[in-house]
Computed example of a mutant assay.
Amino acid sequence: MKTIQKMFEHLNWANQRILEIFQNVEIGEQQLSLFSHILYSEQVWLTRLKGMDSLQMPIWEDGDITVCAKLIKQNEENFKTFLTEIAKTDLDNLITYTNSSGKEFMTSIRDILTHVALHGQYHRGQINSRLRVDGIDPVNIDYITFVR
């Protein structure tokens, strides 16, 4: 559980660093779309982890910097609460959920939480690649930088 909590601390830190660069430079539509996708996906997965229906929730939704800042704050608070509440739960318990295509799956809490952390890092890497193409220095969001 300590590793998962640390991964989510990193996730929040990395999201905040991306937000800060977006607030200070002109960014393209693709970067903003990827970033809002990360944040909306975090909400969808948390909803699924809580056993609630996520079918009507957006995954790819246009957003702006203000919306992204709000989502970061909400997601950080909601995941902190969730991780605190499940601290004594067996992380290998299975969650049943329906994906955005309507297909039902069963996945462990551990695997879902790991996916959420890795999914965001994957897309933040895409954002950094696009920033570089646009002549903007990428944001250092490496885990090792976070723990230093």
Rank of each mutant, 00 (worst) to 15 (best):
D111H: 11
D142C: 06
R132S: 13
K2M: 05
R148A: 09
G135H: 04
D137P: 05
L118I: 11
I72E: 06
M7P: 03
D62Q: 12
L39F: 14
G120S: 12
T89R: 13
N93Y: 13
D142I: 05
E42I: 10
L55H: 04
T145I: 12
F146D: 01
F105V: 15
E61R: 14
R48W: 04
L131H: 10
F82A: 06
T66M: 09
C68P: 07
F8P: 03
V147W: 00
I72C: 02
F79R: 03
I59Y: 12
V67A: 14
R110W: 13
R17T: 13
H115M: 08
T107N: 14
I72S: 04
I72T: 08
I109E: 01
N78Q: 15
D90C: 15
N140F: 12
T66E: 12
L46K: 05
N99P: 12
T47V: 10
K88S: 11
F22L: 11
E85D: 14
Q126W: 07
Y97W: 11
F22E: 05
N12D: 09
D92F: 03
V133H: 00
M7V: 07
G125A: 08
N93W: 06
D137W: 14
M7D: 09
D90L: 11
L94I: 11
K88Q: 15
H123G: 02
K6Y: 01
K2G: 01
L49F: 07
D90A: 15
Q121D: 12
Q74N: 04
Q30L: 05
K103C: 08
N75P: 02
F79V: 10
P138I: 03
M106D: 02
G135L: 03
I136A: 12
E20A: 09
P58F: 10
T98H: 05
D53M: 08
L91W: 13
I72P: 02
Q121M: 09
C68R: 05
C68N: 09
N15D: 13
Y40I: 00
M1L: 05
D137R: 07
T98K: 06
H37G: 15
E85S: 10
D90V: 07
W60E: 14
Y122W: 03
T89Y: 12
S54A: 10
I72V: 15
A69L: 07
Q5P: 01
Y40K: 01
S33E: 09
L34M: 13
L34A: 05
V44A: 11
I141E: 04
H119T: 01
S101V: 08
I27A: 03
T114V: 01
S108D: 14
Q30Y: 01
E42P: 11
S54N: 09
Q74P: 00
I95S: 00
N12T: 12
N78Y: 11
D62G: 11
M1I: 05
F8M: 06
I18L: 11
F8A: 08
I109V: 11
I141D: 06
L131K: 05
Y122K: 04
T84R: 01
T96V: 09
K73D: 09
G125Q: 04
N75T: 06
M52Y: 06
M1W: 01
Y143E: 11
Y97Q: 08
Y40H: 00
M57G: 00
D62S: 13
I86E: 14
Q43M: 13
I144D: 06
P138M: 15
N93L: 15
D64I: 06
I59F: 09
V133S: 01
S108Y: 15
